[in-house]
Amino acid sequence: MPLDPSFVGRTYPPTAPYQVGREKIREFASAIGATDPAHHDPEAARALGHPDVVAPPTFPVIVTMAASSQIIEDPALGVDYSRLVHGDQRFAYTRPVVAGDELVCTNTIEDVSARGGHGFLTTRTDVSTVGGEPVVAVWARYVIRGEA
């Protein structure tokens, strides 16, 4: 069933804050083999002008993927999760995420379309601190595969 185009432009209520832990950044950096000391050692991060360890560029997806369930699981939109494929991903950073950040996500549906029997859904997640400082804007485009 095609997604309802009237959802384009819909913005969801901000998510509950996500507390970025130093150990989570270290764990994520280790999992992707990122050995730069700024991901692991607060002193090295401070030498670069950051208050604590710096997250690798794709770290925010931990926060935004959880937040996007607001859209993906919105019964009114009706996305069939079993047919969902991650198509595109993009990040535009105001600054890197650092340990100690408390991040809030605001999700918006930017585009809904259908082509060749498949549905397409583009979401934008504005990630900011609880104090309202913008950190990173994250776009994801999903393909909802049509029935074979």
């Binding site: 710096v54 198509g87 993009r90 990040f91 535009a92 950073y93 600054r95 890197p96």
Partner: peptide, 10 residues
């Protein structure tokens, strides 16, 4: 490690 301003892929 903090020099990336924008990054996107398909």
């Amino acid at each position: 490690p903090d020099a990336v301003v924008e990054y996107g892929v398909r």
